[in-house]
């Protein structure tokens, strides 16, 4: 496979808390073929803004099923949603109560404090 070098991806990410102001932050990051949206979100946390709230566990196995978000308006597992060198918008799931940024309340009611 030929790797396309020196490309960048751009992510427009919804930030904020319930009830408060919501805004979008745009991040630019190095793009490699095959990367997932979650790869990009993790890269952003490690390199650009660690305060971004995201939820995931298994990273790329698509086994834990906890990394869902709206990717360009569609409900997707961010770990298998492919990144592209274009602008991608990531938002929290609309039908779940928002916790912060991309994290919504997806934990069953009987698994809470």
């Amino acid at each position: 496979m030929v790797e396309r070098k020196n490309k960048t991806a751009r992510l427009r990410i919804s930030r904020g808390m319930p009830g408060g102001e919501r805004c979008y932050d745009t991040f630019e990051l190095p793009y490699e073929d095959g990367m997932s949206v979650l790869d990009a979100l993790r890269w952003i946390r490690a390199n650009l803004d660690s305060t971004l709230a995201i939820r995931y566990s298994c990273i790329n196995a698509n086994a834990c099923k906890t990394c869902m978000a709206l990717v360009n308006g569609e409900v997707e597992y961010t770990c298998i949603a492919k990144l592209t060198p274009n602008l991608i918008t990531v938002e929290p799931l609309p039908k779940r109560p928002l916790i912060r940024d991309l994290v919504t309340d997806s934990v069953p009611e009987d698994e809470k404090v």
């Binding site: 496979m1 073929d33 095959g34 790329n60 698509n62 086994a63």
Partner: peptide
């Protein structure tokens, strides 16, 4: 490599 997602490594 190549990047493989949706599978355990």
């Amino acid at each position: 490599a190549p990047r493989l997602v949706g599978m355990d490594p």
